[in-house]
Design a protein around this nucleic acid. Structure first.
Lengths: 128, 128
DNA sequence: GTATATGCAAAATGTTTGCGTTATG
DNA sequence: CATAACGCAAACATTTTGCATATAC
């Protein structure tokens, strides 16, 4: 049974009020000045909230896990393989696909990870 | 300038002849009995081949990096959040999406990561 | 002959865990 | 008062790095 604790609420609050996925460390740093908290606590809560499908976790190439709300509206990124800049695709374009995949696999989908890599316009022009 | 070495070729060969993404350790284990090689060498080559867009790297929830050929034909997985079983979606359904995203972002897309989570049919029936 | 690749051992990093204590329902 | 959450320190696992040597072009 999941209990209602101040620190858990703080973690959720930070994530809800930030419009991009955050790492455990970033969440810790945001909370710590106000409320004393331990990194392990952050990790344990993030893990739990993912299991409950409240949060969505993606592991990026920097080997860090990024957490965001698992809401209907969420974002994906396109990352440049040259300069590592990124831009956000604001509407997740996968809803239709997911319906088809649910039918073909029988899985009841709860979340997904989708991330694109490519070469950004600036790096494309530099190449010429 | 990238040189043509026996060990690099071995690594590529293993990946090409395996129809699922592999970890550095798995590649090492596949090569070692035949050819002496060091894990660092495997990692360094995998990194290089990803930069060249020859390989595609995805980091999964077990915190390991999995490598596969970055070919037109590649696969994605649906993973069960309860029992962790998975199934493969054999055709990548994102081609049309990518064209649209290239137009809207200006990025020249080279690869992507796409992974779905949900509840598998077996676990769905257990829940009732 | 010079730049790249390799092996080895050690370090780095993000994350997890054991355990004693504290707080919640 | 039983179960869940927390803090702390130590452990873990994968990946990276420094440096000396070997290999490719």
């Amino acid at each position: 049974m999941i209990k209602n604790t101040k620190k858990r609420n703080e973690i959720l609050m930070i994530i809800q009020n930030t419009n991009k996925p955050l790492t455990a460390q970033e969440i810790y740093d945001a909370i710590f000045p106000t409320t004393s908290i331990n990194l392990s606590t952050v990790y344990r809560n993030l893990e739990l909230l993912c299991q409950e499908n409240i949060l969505l976790k993606e592991i990026r190439n920097d080997k860090k896990s990024y957490y965001q709300m698992n809401s209907y509206i969420h974002k994906h990124r396109v990352i440049c393989t040259k300069c590592h800049c990124d831009i956000i695709i604001s509407d997740c374009p996968l809803k239709k696909l997911e319906n088809a995949i649910e039918k073909s696999t029988g899985y009841q989908l709860t979340s997904h990870i989708f991330e694109l890599s490519g070469i950004c316009p600036q790096c494309q022009s530099k190449e010429k």
